[in-house]
Write a protein that binds this DNA or RNA. Structure first.
Length: 198
DNA sequence: TAGGTGATCTTG
DNA sequence: AAGATCACCTAT
């Protein structure tokens, strides 16, 4: 079992660097005693100060307030009335950045993930795509603003992914952000089958 | 490629 | 108070 990432990990470095460093790390949830874990294979970075695609872009609201707090907290919200998306707040207080977890490679507690997703057998879609990943891990709006240095949701350290295996490309579903949609702030492990879109 | 679904934010 | 919008997914 790897060491739990501490606040320092989340608060230091640019959000696009932290998003990249999170690849290969192990995301763990322990919801209602159901322990689940998987290796992070795909992330996206969002920056509240200069990125129009970020919900917190130049505005603090009730929803985005958590991103203005310290790093290492969860930001979970509902999109399209259906899907909960799990993000990790990064950077220090007043710097509203976050990393969206878009896919994981299931690893522990697969039976719980299958049940939550209504699937019989493991397949690459089990936790690919941010909506599917959050659902498989049992995350919903109850898990917003959770401290990731606690024992409900956390990330365990693992060796950093070699840069030759990291693909950097544009983010999904942010066309409305104009020029910022061109930022290559989506990162994934080129070797993994568990990635939402190539 | 369309449609489901509801919280959030903006406008009036 | 109402309307538009939305960091998605599944099935036709």
């Amino acid at each position: 079992m790897g060491k739990k990432l501490n606040r320092e990990f989340y608060e230091n470095g640019k959000v696009e660097q932290v998003a990249q460093q999170l690849l290969g790390k192990i995301l763990v949830t322990n919801i209602n005693g159901e322990l689940c874990a998987g290796r992070i294979t795909e992330t996206e970075a969002y920056n509240g100060r200069m990125d129009r695609a970020c919900h917190a872009y130049q505005k603090k609201t009730q929803r985005t307030e958590i991103m203005y707090g310290p790093g290492g907290f969860s930001y979970v919200y509902l999109v399209y009335g259906i899907h909960h998306l799990f993000n990790i707040v990064t950077n220090k207080r007043d710097f509203a950045d976050a990393v969206l977890i878009r896919a994981i490679e299931p690893h522990t507690g697969i039976e719980h993930m299958l049940k939550r997703r209504g699937l019989k057998a493991i397949n690459p879609k089990l936790c690919c795509g941010p909506g599917n990943a959050a659902k498989a891990l049992g995350l919903n709006n109850l898990h917003n603003a959770v401290d990731l240095t606690g024992d409900l949701i956390w990330v365990e350290d693992a060796p950093i992914l070699k840069s030759q295996h990291v693909v950097e490309t544009t983010r999904i579903g942010v066309d409305y952000a104009g020029e910022d949609a061109k930022l290559r702030w989506r990162f994934y492990d080129s070797r993994s089958k568990f990635v939402s879109k190539r």
